[in-house]
Amino acid sequence: MMGTVTRQRIAAALALAVLAGAAVTFPLVFSSPATTNYGVYALIFVTAVSAWNVFSGFSGYISLGQAVFFGSGAYAVGIAARDWHVSGVAVFGLLPLGAAVGAAIAVPFGLVALRVRRHTFIVITIAVFFIFQLMAYNLSSFTGGSVGVSAPFLPWTATTFNERFYYIALACAVVMIVIAAGVRRSRFGLQLRAIRDDEDRARGLGVHAMRVKLAAFALSAAVTGLVGGVWFLYLTQVQPPSGFDPLFDLSVVLMAFFGGVGTISGPVLGALIIEPAQLYLTATYTNGYISEIMLGALFLAVVLFMPRGIIPTAGEWITRLRTRGRPAVPAAAAAAAPQSAGKAAAGDTA
């Protein structure tokens, strides 16, 4: 038994090393800006979806308002750069401000929204999202109205521009994945999952539910705000419908479900598959409607055929493949054990 675990550890470490190597060398191999563009967007979504997952995936509170933090982070960086006359590479120093603004919004938002559960929570996040989009339009002296805000000019060529943003986004994604893995292993993560499974019982057992939910919400918001700032600097502009985009909210949730909610690698995989596919479809079918229909059809297919996402479903397939052809274990307890052990292993490596 120990041997298997060690072998699994080594295999996981090897796989991680290969992945890290591929991620780092990607822009060196595919140096064309059109290709690195896919990489930058994919990594921005890896970060955003993992951040969503740390709150919504672990706690079971499905937020459809992540764009509130994404857009606010983008606007915070943009407005600060404009009003404080920050130019050149110094604008990257403003990224922590995006994170701080995200967290600062999450606290009052969470204090109101986290009092209610399930559908009501989802709808409140949608309502708050629309209030923010409207504020971006209407507070035009501050946000520039429908014209939006532009980022300061960065004196880089297209290739270096994309390459540098690729590494910035990669750094964000790695930090977020490490945070997510840390949270999952910690007491904090356990409390979040206890809330997901049965909030009333978790409270009965001494979990300060509101404090834990709010902390996870603010953490998720801070990272989303930060990566919103990166997205803004990369795109060099933000308008109300692009910063506060309802499709962003739903894409994030779709990617998480596609990969597997509540796991570490699921959201990463979901973002890495869906975001480039979406970009490719939009670029291929310029009218955009076909890609919308295809995205919807993909949604339906995922929900109907892999209702728990790729990672948990694939984990089950692997377990089934491994145990295939083995003689049936006689005792009932022993029969149950390999399967649950396999599931636990799939969950741990995930």
Partner: peptide, 8 residues
């Protein structure tokens, strides 16, 4: 998600 997909 399903009803949203239908909407899309």
């Amino acid at each position: 998600l399903v009803t949203y997909a239908a909407a899309l």
